[in-house]
Design a protein around this nucleic acid. Structure first.
Length: 211
DNA sequence: AACTCGGGGCA
DNA sequence: TGCCCAGAGTT
């Protein structure tokens, strides 16, 4: 694929995302960390409902870490996977207070030592909070970038490296939002809405899905 | 590499 | 109703 065509696709995805309002709500690094963990297998709208109810009371590792497992589960019950998420959140709060003086670690390797924080979450946190260049490749980023012919790598890590070559470094932390938004709303796994897609002209995948 | 967790969203 | 999902931990 030619460079000009790649840039055209990326510019359109960026422009489209800027018009949307689907980001997680948070007021601190800790709140973002909690919100991203809750967002696994759950919509951002649902996470925002939970956090809006919870953060006014529980916005620090100390306060949240004082909850029992049962209380923590009650707070987040309607986001799915709540048993494991509650356990991980409490473990994370305890580790933050005991080992990190309640400061969110500022490198990816250390972030991943926190319970419930894997590669994707660590990349998101590091890039948003600390502006550390990292492009989190989740299922949406992977699917969309491959369909558009922007990447061919077999696994998320290979795809991350490919995308980092064709996207300006200062945009890495934003770029995963472009793909995620596009992947959720338009380029869906099952039935992509090619009719409403801004890059359908450039797309090699392009399904006949025009109603 | 495959399996599991789990309520919500959507057809 | 049934199928899938902004993932991580375990085996």
């Amino acid at each position: 694929m030619r460079k000009a065509q790649r840039e055209a696709i990326l510019a359109k995805l960026e422009e489209t995302y800027k018009g949307s309002k689907t980001a997680l709500n948070y007021n601190s690094p800790f709140e973002l960390l909690v919100a991203v963990i809750l967002s696994a297998q759950c919509t951002d709208e649902r996470v925002n409902v939970i956090t809006a109810r919870m953060f006014p009371r529980l916005n620090t590792p100390e306060k949240m870490g004082a909850l029992t497992q049962e209380e923590m589960e009650a707070e987040i019950r309607d986001c799915g996977l709540y048993h494991a998420k509650a356990k991980n959140l409490l473990g994370m709060c305890h580790m933050l207070t005991q080992r990190f003086n309640s400061v969110i670690p500022n490198d990816i390797k250390t972030l991943m030592e926190l319970p419930g924080v894997g590669q994707k979450t660590a990349n998101v946190i590091a890039s948003i909070i600390y502006n550390i260049p990292a492009l989190a490749v989740d299922t949406h980023v992977f699917r969309v970038s491959h369909r558009l012919g922007l990447a061919q790598g077999k696994d998320p890590l290979a795809t991350e490296k490919e995308l980092e070559k064709i996207i300006p470094r200062e945009k890495w932390s934003d770029a995963h939002h472009w793909f995620i938004w596009h992947g959720r709303k338009i380029c869906k796994a099952r039935k992509p809405l090619c009719r409403g897609c801004v890059v359908v002209e450039e797309c090699p995948f392009k399904e006949k899905n025009f109603e």
